[in-house]
Design a binder for these strands. Structure first.
Lengths: 323, 323
DNA sequence: TTGTAAGCGTTATCAT
DNA sequence: ATGATAACGCTTACAA
C-alpha cells in the first residue's frame, strides 16, 4: 500500500507538500502540485481514511441507534439521515438494538470509543440520564421528546388529540386506544392525551403492547369478546390498525360501521387500505436530527417539534350515522 | 483523553503490558494485570477504536451499497445484515445510491480507502466489471446473480416462472408482466422467463419502469386503455401489484375476475391485501451475504441461491371460472 | 512556499 | 513474563 511518504519520495517533495495537495491547501507551487499529482497517478495512491481519522480526531461518521431497521417508520427516518449524510459527506453506522439495554450500551460505548462523532437515538429503552452521561463524548440527538436533551420529535400528545378529536367530531364517545410499549415516553403522552380529551376512559379500552399486524388482529379478537366495547379505536401504528381491520372484516364486521379505526404513521399500508391516519413526516425528523448532530447547536439542547397531519381515509367516519 | 501511555505510567508497567491486558493476552502476572485494571478505572480510560483500526489494518466494518434504504425489500436485507453484524461484533455503513453511478463510485472508493473491510452490494447500476476492479481492496458480495462474483441471490428466472405457471394452471394464456428498471440483470432474467414460458408475449404486455404504488396505478390506467388486454399480470413488486389492484377497484373493476394479479416480495402489503405473491426471504439474503463478506470464502466467488415460495392469496384465481 | 519533526493511540516485533 | 521501540498513515505546528 503506497503512502504519502512514497509519494513525497517519488515527487521529490516533503510529505507536508503532499498532504497540502491532497487537502487542496493553498501555498503550493504549481510545478510541485503537478509533480505530486503525477506521483499519485503513477503509484495508484489511495488515501487511508483510518489514518486521517486518527490524525484529525474526527470520523465524519454519525451513529444511529434504533430498535428495528426494517420497521417502515424507522426506515423512513434512516432515509432522511442517509440523504443528509450523503450531502454533507458524512457516513452513518446503524445499530439495531431490539430495545435490549445491553445492546444500547454498546452503541453508547461506540461514541465513547470515538467510532462515531455523534449519535442519533431514534428510540431507546435505557434511562435518559444514563444516556446523557455519554454526552461528554459528543452530540446525542433524540428523535423523542425529553427535557434537557437535543431532540427532534413529534408531540404525541397533540397528535393523539387530533385523532381523538376527529372521532369526537364524528359523534364517537366510546373511544379506545392502542399503545406500543406501555411505559415509553410516547405511550405516556398518548395516554395523557386520551385521559385529558375523552370523558370515558376505562382501562379495558387501553390496549397495550401492540406493534404488529398480528397484534392488531389479537386486539380485534379481544374487542369482540368484550362485554362493553368502544365504537372507535385510535391506534399507535398503521400496522396495528391494519391488523384490526383485516381481522374484523374476516369475521364479517364492518369498518367503520361496527368499529371506527384511525392509524398512525401515514405509511404505505394507510394508502392501500384507505386508512384515516395521523401522518408523520419521518424523513424530516431524520434530516433535522442529522443536521443538529453535525453542527455545534447541539450543545444548546435544541428542541425541534415536527408537526403531524390527520389524513382522511375511509375508516373513521360513522358513529353520527349510526344514531 | 487518557491513552495507554497514561495507563502505563499510572500502573507502572509498559504500554505493551497494558495492551496485553486490554486484549486479554496471556503472559501477564496477576498483580500487574490488577494494577492496569485499577488504572483503567481510576483514569476512566476508554480505548480509541480508530487507533486500533489503524494499527491492525482492520475496521471490522462492512459497507452496504443500496439504492433506497426505505424500500421494504432493501430494509429487510439490511435487517439480516444488522443481525449478523451485531452477532459478529462488526459494524456496517450504509450508502444510499439512488442508482446514481457517481454515488456508487463513492462507495467503491470507501472500500479502496479502507473505510470498510468489505462491501455488500444489494443492487447497482455500474457495470459489474468496473465494480470488480475494486475486489483487490477487499471482498465484494452481490445480492444479485452475476458470473464470477460472490453472490447471494434468488433466481429471478425460476421465481417468475413460478408466478407464470400459477397463472397458466388457472387457465390464463393472456399474461402480461411488470418490470422495474428494464435493463437490470433481474429484469432481463424475468423477461426471459416470460418469453420462454408463455406462448403469447406482445411487447405491449411488458410494462416497464414500475416500482411504486403510483406506478402500479398508472399501469392499471394504461391497461384499461389498451384495445387488447392481458387477463393476468405478474408484477415485480407487491407495491406495483397493490397500485394496480387499488386503481382497478376504484374504477369498478374486479380483481381477480377482470384482471388476475400476482405480486412479488411477500411484504406487509401482500398480507393486508391478500395478494398472491412470490415471497422472498430477504433477511436470509442479508445474513448470507454478510457471512461471506467477513469470511475468506469470498475469494472462491461462492454463489448461493436462496429459494422463493409462491404464497397463495386471493388475487390470482379466475380465468378458469371465466370461460 | 516548503520542509522537519512531533504527534494521534494503538499493536506487534524482538529482545531480555 | 515484561519492556523498548518501531510501525500504521496521516495532519499540523513551527521553522526556515
Amino acid at each position: 500500500m503506497t503512502n504519502i511518504r512514497d509519494l513525497a519520495r517519488e515527487a521529490d517533495v516533503s510529505v507536508t507538500t503532499v498532504s497540502r495537495v491532497l487537502n487542496h491547501h493553498p501555498y503550493v507551487a504549481d510545478d510541485k502540485r503537478k509533480a505530486v499529482q503525477d506521483a499519485i497517478r503513477k503509484l495508484g495512491y489511495i488515501r487511508n481514511q483510518t489514518a486521517v481519522q486518527l490524525s484529525t480526531g474526527q470520523t465524519k461518521t454519525i451513529g444511529v441507534m434504533l430498535p428495528y431497521v426494517d420497521h417502515p417508520y424507522h426506515a423512513a427516518i434512516l432515509q432522511g439521515i442517509a440523504r443528509c449524510a450523503f450531502e454533507e459527506d458524512y457516513r452513518f453506522l446503524t445499530w439495531q438494538t431490539n430495545y435490549v439495554e445491553s445492546h444500547e450500551q454498546t452503541v453508547l460505548q461506540a461514541l465513547a470509543q470515538r467510532e462515531v462523532d455523534g449519535l442519533i437515538i431514534v428510540s431507546h429503552s435505557l434511562a435518559v440520564e444514563d444516556i446523557l452521561k455519554y454526552e461528554q463524548y459528543g452530540p446525542i440527538v433524540f428523535c423523542e421528546h425529553h427535557a434537557d436533551v437535543s431532540a427532534v420529535y413529534i408531540d404525541h400528545y397533540t397528535a393523539f388529540q387530533k385523532g381523538l378529536a376527529a372521532f369526537q367530531s364524528l359523534g364517537h364517545t366510546e373511544i379506545g386506544i392502542c399503545l406500543g410499549r406501555p411505559d415509553s415516553t410516547n405511550s405516556l403522552a398518548r395516554k395523557r392525551a386520551y385521559q385529558d380529551t375523552v370523558a370515558c376512559t376505562p382501562s379495558e379500552w387501553i390496549y397495550e403492547h401492540s406493534l404488529t399486524i398480528e397484534d392488531g388482529a389479537s386486539i380485534a379478537r379481544h374487542w369482540l369478546s368484550q362485554p362493553r366495547r368502544p365504537t372507535a379505536l385510535l391506534t399507535a401504528s398503521d400496522h396495528v390498525a391494519a391488523g384490526i381491520i383485516l381481522e374484523l372484516r374476516k369475521r364479517g364486521y364492518r369498518v367503520p360501521e361496527d368499529l371506527a379505526v384511525i392509524g398512525f404513521d401515514g405509511s404505505d399500508l394507510a394508502v392501500v387500505l384507505n386508512l384515516t391516519t395521523v401522518a408523520v413526516p419521518y424523513e424530516t425528523i431524520g434530516r433535522e436530527a442529522f443536521s443538529i448532530a453535525i453542527s455545534d447547536t447541539w450543545r444548546d439542547h435544541p428542541q425541534i417539534e415536527i408537526p403531524t397531519t390527520l389524513l382522511n381515509g375511509l375508516t373513521a367516519n360513522p358513529a353520527v350515522n349510526e344514531r
